[in-house]
Nucleic acid binder design. Structure first.
Length: 243
DNA sequence: GGGCTATGTGAAGCCAACGC
DNA sequence: GCGTTGGCTTCACATAGCCC
């Protein structure tokens, strides 16, 4: 995402205000809110989005949760890499709600990360859904932490204390993708980052959990449209061209 | 809603050939 | 040596359907 003047921020706010269950925010380099929608304000217990401006997560969320959000934002700011599809229980000032959220770096024209933006989806938790989301959060975290390992559905089902078929159904309903698809997305994200380093394609394949380089190249080409080597060449050319 | 099963699909592993 | 591509095989998984 590229920034963006005040007019664009206003436009974004207006757009996301139409989504009452999708908290949205933009923060500057000091992690202060510079834009938010009504859903975000409600989550923070504020009357209107403008009440958030100039404040940080530490000001708006109690204790450990505020520190956690601040850490995540710092991570995005430092790495310039997005964090996607995190499922987490948010115990904000106003209400407790499960959120499926993504945080992305806001970049200037020169590619430098100058802020963080986030968008979430509220998952209402009536009638004991907490248990379900707790299970799925555990599974998603396992996939995230061990994306370089071959993980089987039955192992994940054991972790979630449910059956394979039930896990697959619940996971797809909440994340809008299958556990396998989720794992593939994580691996692909990792591969894209590793291809920016000097590691060999074989090494990248191995670190992304592929035993076989050919399987990795095939999967990469199917998803991205070009071979890993071609992709690497292209991003190097892009980075070397002055803006 | 949840558990189970059958089945088709596709991802991944293995291997080989080829180009640079 | 490294990377790409393709053929073949295996098997995990997504899906649909059924039952409780």
């Amino acid at each position: 995402m590229r920034l963006i003047g005040q007019t664009n921020l206003d436009l974004l706010e207006q757009m996301f205000d139409q989504l009452p269950h999708n908290p949205f925010f933009v923060k500057d380099h000091a992690l202060r809110y510079v834009a938010a929608n009504g859903a975000m304000a409600r989550l923070c217990g504020a009357a209107r989005p403008s009440d958030l401006y100039g404040k940080t997560a530490l000001d708006l969320f109690p204790g450990a949760l505020g520190r956690r959000y601040e850490t995540l934002d710092q991570q995005v700011l430092a790495s310039g890499q997005a964090i996607t599809n995190k499922l987490e229980l948010s115990t904000g000032r106003a209400e407790t709600v499960w959120l499926l959220y993504s945080r992305l770096p806001v970049k200037a024209a020169d590619g430098k990360t100058i802020g963080v933006t986030g968008v979430s989806r509220e998952l209402k938790a009536p009638g004991g859904r907490d248990l379900l989301y707790n299970r799925l959060a555990k599974v998603a975290e396992r996939l995230r932490s061990q994306s370089d390992h071959p993980l089987r559905l039955d192992q994940l089902a054991t972790l979630a204390a449910t059956s394979k078929s039930q896990l697959a159904r619940d996971f797809t309903r909440v994340f809008a993708m299958t556990p396998g698809g989720f794992l593939q997305q994580l691996r692909l994200d990792r591969a894209l980052r590793l291809l920016e380093t000097d590691k060999s394609i074989a090494q990248v394949a191995h670190e992304c959990g592929y035993v076989d380089q050919s399987a990795f190249a095939r999967r990469f080409r199917k998803s991205i449209g070009v071979s890993p080597q071609h992709y690497r060449t292209r991003i190097r050319v892009t980075h070397s061209v002055p803006r």
